[in-house]
Simulated scan of single mutants.
Amino acid sequence: MQAGVLSCLAVWLPVLTLPWAVSNAVVTVASTLLCTELHARFTFGTGRRAGWREHWQSAGSAAVAYLATTAAVYVLHLAQPSPGLLSEQLVYLSASGLAGLGRFLVLRLYVFAVRRSQQTAARPPVPQPAGAVSLLAAA
């Protein structure tokens, strides 16, 4: 969510000298690289850097998000040829929020799910002390 708000603010910096779609692409690439690393290290509990596989899969979901946010702003411009900055921000932030939710689900259910199941399978079971009694067994 914070990345979406920062992207909303950041997309307007390069737009002063670049077309809107190019500005959106620059912000999308930068935020995708940063967020994939943060998701790998913290959100999904891998505890280490994202590998090439995660970055490529995340890039695919980011490409879809880029198309969605760019299309949303262009549809706004078709509907209203000279929208105000507030209208553009609202449309971009709404599309970015929906795309971000979709990306999060893809990362959670697909990109980082394989690694988590592999880590669980590779992790040895926690040894129980001799004579330990389970609460369920005692009940």
Score class of each variant (00 low, 15 high):
Met1Gln: 13
Gln2Trp: 12
Gln2Val: 13
Gly4Asn: 11
Leu6Arg: 07
Leu9Ala: 15
Leu9Ser: 10
Ala10Gln: 04
Val11Asn: 04
Trp12Pro: 00
Val15Pro: 05
Leu16Val: 12
Leu16Gly: 13
Trp20Cys: 01
Trp20Met: 14
Val22Tyr: 13
Ser23Val: 04
Asn24Gly: 05
Ala25Trp: 01
Val26Met: 13
Thr28His: 02
Val29Asp: 01
Val29Thr: 10
Ala30Ser: 09
Ala30Met: 14
Ser31Asp: 03
Leu34Glu: 06
Cys35Asp: 00
Cys35Gly: 04
Glu37Trp: 09
Leu38Val: 11
Leu38Pro: 00
Arg41Asn: 05
Phe42Trp: 15
Thr46Ser: 09
Arg49Tyr: 01
Arg53Phe: 02
Trp56Gly: 05
Trp56His: 03
Trp56Gln: 05
Ser58Cys: 13
Ser58Pro: 03
Gly60Val: 09
Ala62Glu: 03
Ala63Cys: 11
Val64Lys: 03
Val64Ile: 10
Tyr66Thr: 01
Tyr66Gln: 05
Ala68Tyr: 05
Thr69Glu: 08
Thr70Gln: 04
Ala71Arg: 03
Ala72Glu: 01
Val75Leu: 12
Leu76Glu: 01
Leu76Met: 07
His77Tyr: 08
Leu78Cys: 07
Ala79Gln: 11
Ser82Asn: 14
Ser82Thr: 15
Gly84Tyr: 07
Leu86Cys: 00
Ser87Tyr: 02
Tyr92Glu: 06
Leu93Cys: 02
Ala95Gln: 04
Ala95Ser: 10
Ala99Lys: 05
Ala99Cys: 07
Val106Gln: 06
Val106Asp: 03
Leu109Gln: 06
Leu109Ile: 00
Tyr110Asp: 12
Tyr110Trp: 15
Val111His: 02
Ala113Gly: 02
Arg116His: 09
Arg116Leu: 15
Ser117Cys: 10
Thr120Ala: 14
Ala121Phe: 01
Ala121His: 01
Ala122Gly: 06
Pro124Gly: 08
Val126Met: 09
Val126Asn: 07
Val126Asp: 12
Pro127Arg: 10
Gln128Glu: 12
Gln128Asp: 10
Gln128Met: 11
Gly131Arg: 09
Ala132Tyr: 13
Ala132Asn: 02
Val133Cys: 03
Val133Met: 14
Ser134Ile: 00
Ser134Pro: 00
Ala139Cys: 04
